[in-house]
Design a protein around this nucleic acid. Structure first.
Lengths: 341, 341
DNA sequence: CTGAAAGCGCTTACAG
DNA sequence: CTGAAAGCGCTTACAG
């Protein structure tokens, strides 16, 4: 890769002049500028942005930690982020897969050493270690936590979904459809799961319905066949529920599978509501009734927020209080739920 | 962020000595080293790797262009890449979403300016522009193309799947199950789609079966409801096929949906084979019969290959010919296909 | 063992 | 208009 010095040498001028010419600054004659520009183009010159990063103290780079791209949900979030960052000339993002490498704090250290200007953080799958949280404290750059929170990051800005409201919405849809015997396959290990569960309880209480504990099934190990087993147990039990609120669309898929494998039909024998509105929700039959999240907006808002914080730093304005931004959700009625008697 | 100079000043030694102490080089007394180490730890010192990148001419960074993370397939590929890169101390990856920004060549320019050491490239969704291909030529750093190829990148190393063999495998499974009337929902806009189609034709010919053109349906606009419409037309036509080979699992899902919406049952009325073995393949009912790809291996091998090329560069060994590495696929028999009369 | 100096590739005041 | 010099944060020969 040719350097400024080479271009300067070829043109027979100083590096200073070459620098000015290429960056469009004044102080060079038009003739020299043209000569320099043409030589630079010929030699395919590309300025080294790492130098600029060192000089300005701004790497124009944002760290991004993801736990997993298991479906289109996280993908759409990242898409929204990149879009906004790109427009702000943060076109490059240093990404790292902390779940994959199981070395969260080492990853954070790497970010610090790469001098990323800020961090967009999908929480790790498990509760992070003390070392991780400590490293996070030491990071001292703007951080926006995305999608989920976890113990130890309450002091950071957050962008996610209205999980509580979504939990309510799902439940109220079923109640409004005449359901009383409503089960819940919930997940307490994530903040999203807890909020949705709260929403469920709130809606039940609001309508004077009793939450039957035998229909409340906790998914302890998400991603295993546990949800499927719970669903099967619920549906083949003595007193089966007429509807099931699922932690998310994948769990709802497990319910569909369990019903199918038991020879039951959805929504005739049981209604199901998911959460997320993944691509598969509208592709599967019956189409899922689900609480649609807006991952693109989540990603955009998270990136916007980070850029705001970076701007505030530059303006030396006092840091505002960390705020939680929860993007609205909405009910999408599919074919997996129905009105009953 | 505290600098080497600050640490040096605090310790009352030169920056040179401080540098040696922190990087574990010899030439400092043990006492001074300990003092420097402790001060650095206290002040949470992190070396600026951008400087190292400039000095060494190696940014220890790899560019990654993705078109989309629509499902777990690309996600798993990236997971495999990151894993291998991380182990080689390429722990950070500059990522860019060229589809999202619609400015492919600008993205490549950014990569050049950031001095990425190499490029892992998921091809863009559409055939790239001349400008893009030109910028790619100018890039002059190792490149590995992943998953798909496209016109203009034949000169690069490639890692993908045995798509041709997969197409054969899918078709032969159906033939072996007694099917003769086999339709194909194919996609010619991607290299993977073309190879799978070739595999289909090869298998049909090998078994002396005629390819009925009325059962050959091209998906022109992938991601729309076109595949669904094709499937519906095929299944409700005069002379419906007894089996359908789908371009991939998503298209197979569209076939399931079309069959369902027509009141048909899979596999009783029609058999379906997908391609990819996405997470959803085993979650949906009927479980998909599909050709399983190995995205984790694709990612790992692509990264391995890139690292090899970077190593070869350092060794100044002559560049080998670009090679295509196709990871084996295998048939996964689910419930969406059955043996007939 | 320790420090001063050159250099990586650039930009930006400051002289001529 | 043009060049020489300082500086960003570091490493690495080279002197003392």
């Amino acid at each position: 890769m040719s350097s400024l010095a080479e271009i300067a040498r070829i043109c027979g001028v100083s590096v200073g002049a070459t620098s000015k010419a290429l960056s469009g600054k004044s102080g060079v004659s038009e003739a020299t500028r043209q000569r320099i520009l043409s030589v630079a183009a010929q030699h395919n010159y590309r300025p080294n942005r790492l130098v600029h990063a060192i000089q300005s103290g701004r790497s124009m780079t944002v760290g991004l930690t993801c736990n997993d791209f298991r479906d289109d949900f996280s993908g759409r979030i990242v898409e929204g982020m990149i879009e906004v960052l790109y427009d702000a000339n943060y076109d490059a993002v240093v990404i790292s897969w902390d779940l994959c490498v199981h070395e969260g704090e080492k990853v954070l250290r790497t970010f610090a050493e790469r001098r990323v200007d800020g961090l967009l953080m999908f929480p790790p799958a498990d509760q992070p270690s003390q070392a991780y949280l400590q490293e996070l404290k030491n990071f001292r750059r703007p951080i926006v936590v995305v999608d989920q929170t976890f113990v130890g990051v309450e002091d950071y800005d957050f962008v996610g979904s209205q999980d509580f409201e979504g939990g309510e919405l799902a439940t109220e849809h079923l109640i409004a459809s005449g359901h009383r015997k409503i089960a819940n396959l919930y997940h307490r290990k994530t903040s999203t799961g807890r909020a949705r569960l709260e929403g469920f309880r709130s809606a039940m209480q609001k309508h004077g319905l009793v939450v039957h504990e035998q229909w409340m099934r906790e998914i302890q190990r998400y991603g295993t066949d546990e949800a499927y087993a719970h669903a099967k147990a619920l549906l083949s039990g003595e007193n089966p529920p007429s509807a099931i609120v699922a932690f998310n669309d994948w769990v709802a898929m497990d319910v569909l599978a369990a019903a199918h494998d038991l020879g039951l039909s959805v929504p005739r024998d049981v209604s199901v509501v998911g959460f997320a509105d993944l691509k598969l929700a509208s592709v599967v039959r019956p189409r899922l009734t689900t609480i649609a999240q807006d991952p693109l907006s989540i990603g955009r808002r998270a990136a916007d927020r980070l850029l705001q914080m970076l701007q505030a730093e530059r303006d030396a304005s006092p840091p505002g209080k960390p705020m939680a931004d929860r993007v609205p959700v909405k009910l999408v009625v599919g074919e997996s739920s129905r009105t009953i008697g």
